[in-house]
Structures are given as C-alpha cells and as structure tokens.
Computed example of a mutant assay.
Amino acid sequence: MNDIELRHLRSFLAVARERSLTGAGAVLHLTQQAVSAHVRHLERALGVALLVRTSRGVLLTAAGEELAAGGAAVVDDVDRLAERVRAVADAQAGTLRLACCPAATSLFAFDLADALEASVPGLRVTLKAARHPRDELELLTGGRADAAFMWLPVGDGSLHHAVVRSDPRAVAVSTRHPLADRASVTLAELATDPVVRPDVLISPDVERFWIVDPRPDGARAPRGPVVPLVEDCLLEVGRGRGVWFAPQPLEMLAPTGGVRWIPVKDAERFELAVVWTDRAPQTLVTRLIAEVRTLTGHVPR
C-alpha cells in the first residue's frame, strides 16, 4: 500500500468513470499511454488486476469495482486535507480580500480589517469596493475576492453564507409623497406605489424579495421604472416616480433633499451575510465571521 501514488489512483478513477483509457486521458489532459501506465503501476502495487481491456473500452474486475467505490472517498479526503492545510498556512501569513459595498459595511469595515490583522500574525486584509451585488458576485466568482458582504438572498446556490447583521427594511419616498411625514408605514399603505428597481440584482427571486412581491395579501407589487444603479433609484424617487425598499443603512446614500426614508414596520428585515466560495480559506473565513459578529453584536438564531 505504501507504493500507491495518488496520481495513479486519480487516473484509475477517471478510467472507471469514463470506461475508457482514451476518455480518461481527455478528462485528465494526459495521453492514453500515460493513463495506461498509471493503471499498470497501481495494479502492480496492489498485486491485482483492476481492468479488462476490450475492443469497446474497459471493464472493471471485482477488485476494480471495489477500488472505484472506495478510492473516490480517499481522493476527496486528501483534497479536503490539502485545503485545510492551505487554509492554516493562509491564516498565518497572507492576504484576505474582502469585497464590500461601502453603504453596507462602513459601520464596521475598517475596525474589522484592523481587528483581523491584529489577531492573525502576518495577515493583510484588503477591502475591495463594489457598487452593487453583481459587482460583488463577479469579484467572488472571478477569484478576485475571498469573501464578500451581501444582503440575502444572494441568488447563487453555490455560495456559502453566514448572517452577521440584521437590518430593518425602510422605504425611500419623495418628500412630496402623502406619507412623507409619517414616523413609520405599512405595506398596505404603499400598495399602489410603483417600486423603482435597480438593474443590479442577481435574479428575479432576489428582485421579488427586495420589492416585497407578493405583498402580505397576495397582491403583486406594482413595478416602477428600472434604472442602472442604486443611486439612480433615489433620483427617480426624488422626482416622485416611485418608491424604493432597501435596508435602512442605505439611507446614507440619499441626497440631501427630495427623499425621505421611513421604516416599514410590517416588512421582513434584511440580513447581511459574509458570503464565500469553496476556494476561500476556511480558517480565515471562520475568524472573519466571528470578528464581524463581535463588532455588530449579532447573535445567530
């Protein structure tokens, strides 16, 4: 067993999946001869025949079937171990790249970066500004950020997340709106107001969450104009062309005049989360989540 090499096992597993030496070579970007040599080395190391070669490809022997059934788990275990080792190394020295929208994270981003660097020797935290969710998603999936701060739902089931803050939902209305002087409003009172929508949300499901569609009574939310950016939403609101729902911290983006933010007392809250991909260093992500929750005072439910 000491003579088994992981690359030989990977080649055999590819052959078992493809039922072809040539097909396995294409998947692994190796020649057929190289794959065949790997399998022969593995057979000699184990002292058993693993394959029966035929004119139509290969068949697995009983021993080959057994190795195929257990070998994948071995390779997965090794891959996970390698990832954990890399994460530990990253946690001791390296860089953690965080994508964040300033409006969502300005209350804690700088303190967070300082706290992480102070607690992890050799770590450098870089903050990458993103204007909207699509920017953040592109930074993550493109490998230019290790983690991001995004309001849920994210709209991408392949991403991991952990909630670090809960924000009330507010509505931005024109100062000329009939409800502009109210201390709070309900969704029923906004039933006929068209909702302005920024063209930055990742999916129709995400958009429906932001505009509260459907409403509690089952009615559809009235659609207002679609605009390029969040800032454009506020300009449309200021001109009385609709309202806009958003997490209350986005109030800091409002222009000085023309717009009023009002809490919506019966609307679901927004949850801000740390979001990351499978490539992110898990040890650092775990530390990141703990530090953010300390700064925001968020206690997971």
Rank of each mutant, 00 (worst) to 15 (best):
V226Q: 13
G155I: 04
V171K: 03
T175S: 13
E236C: 00
E236Y: 03
R165L: 15
G240S: 09
V163A: 12
D205N: 06
H160Q: 10
W210Q: 14
P247K: 00
G240K: 06
S184E: 15
V164A: 00
V173Q: 02
R165Q: 14
R182M: 06
R223K: 13
F209D: 08
A188V: 02
R223C: 01
A172S: 12
V164W: 02
P153M: 05
M252W: 14
V163S: 02
V200G: 01
P216W: 12
V173T: 04
V195H: 06
A183H: 05
H177D: 09
S158H: 14
L187D: 10
P204A: 12
P216V: 10
V154T: 09
T175D: 15
R215I: 10
A183Q: 11
P153E: 04
D232C: 12
A219N: 02
F209G: 05
P247V: 02
R182I: 05
A180D: 04
E236R: 02
L201Y: 12
V212T: 14
E189Y: 06
L201E: 06
L187K: 02
S203V: 03
A221D: 07
V227Y: 09
V206N: 03
L187W: 04
P222S: 09
G238D: 07
V212G: 09
G155R: 05
T186G: 10
R169S: 15
P204Q: 03
A170W: 15
V185H: 04
A183D: 14
G238Q: 00
S174R: 04
R197I: 15
V163F: 08
D205K: 06
R220N: 06
W244M: 04
V237W: 00
P225I: 09
W244V: 07
S203L: 04
E231D: 15
V212N: 14
A188I: 04
L250Y: 15
H177N: 01
R241E: 12
R241S: 01
E236Q: 09
V173F: 02
R197T: 15
H161Q: 13
H161C: 11
P153N: 09
A180Q: 09
A180R: 06
R220C: 05
V163L: 07
R165W: 12
V163M: 02
P249M: 12
D232M: 14
D156H: 13
G240E: 03
F209E: 08
V195W: 01
R220V: 10
L179P: 02
M252Y: 14
R176Y: 01
L250C: 11
D232P: 08
D205M: 10
G238L: 00
L152E: 14
D217T: 05
I211P: 01
E207Q: 10
A246V: 09
G218P: 01
G157V: 15
T175W: 04
F209S: 08
R215N: 11
E207G: 00
P168L: 11
L190P: 08
D193Q: 13
P214D: 12
V230E: 15
C233F: 10
D232F: 08
G155N: 07
S158G: 06
R215S: 07
